[in-house]
Amino acid sequence: MNTGAQSSGSYPDIWRRFSPAESVVRTLWLMLIVFTAIWSLRNLDITWEYFLDAHIQAGDLLTRMFPPDWGHTGQILDPLLETIHIATLGTIVSFAIAIPLAFLSARNTTPNWLTWFIGRFFLVSSRSINTIVWALVFVAIFGPGAMAGIWAIAFRSIGFMGKLIAEAIEEVDEGTIEAIEATGASRLKVLLIGVLPQVMPVIYGTTIYRWDINIRESTVLGFVGAGGIGIELYSSINLFRWPEVAVMLIAVLLVVIVSEFVSATARQKIT
């Protein structure tokens, strides 16, 4: 930046990467970030003494987990299956709701701005509320159990899938739609024949991807009573039965890793 006057034969011997103004702006940004972090840390109601012996507590907890209580394995198979069912059924429900909502929220397929706004509103609300918060709501409605879990999974997934599908719809090739419209097809037919086939790979991909996320999410639904392995895990933790906890954690680890693998393989085959 500051190269100074250049007379022939002699070259400037100072060079700065940033001009003074740029340096000031960069320093201010850095200070803003650091101060926000410090302000946050100082204002949190934290008893730092607990932090100091955390590693001892953590080590203690780990030693209590070993050896894992393998005899418990039989009792967790059913809850584990329930967890997978909740994730799968929740994904199927959200699949059915997300597709029409996506067509409503895509600018090129929505009937008018009001329907577009309504579609977007539902998608944004769905995504803003975490699965476990949805679970609180549905436990209050349906009572504790898998039903609440399925709806919690479904309601959180709608926004995720709807958003991605709507984006795919907005990128659909206009030419095809025009060509089908030119044959005198009705609006619904245009959607079904012109748009849907083009976004189908995205829909499959998104659904499978979300299913794999949902497996992970459904492992904790039980913490608020919405079914699955979380119920057993939560009660074992609260009863300090650490060897049982260890078995469940290993089971969760296996299920999540296997589902991630299945999902990745399936998506690779589609796209």
Binding site: S10, Y11, P12, D13, I14, W15
Partner: peptide
């Protein structure tokens, strides 16, 4: 960088 390096670089 040292000033001789900077002027060498310009050169």
């Amino acid at each position: 960088y040292p000033s001789e390096d900077v002027s060498a670089a310009f050169e």
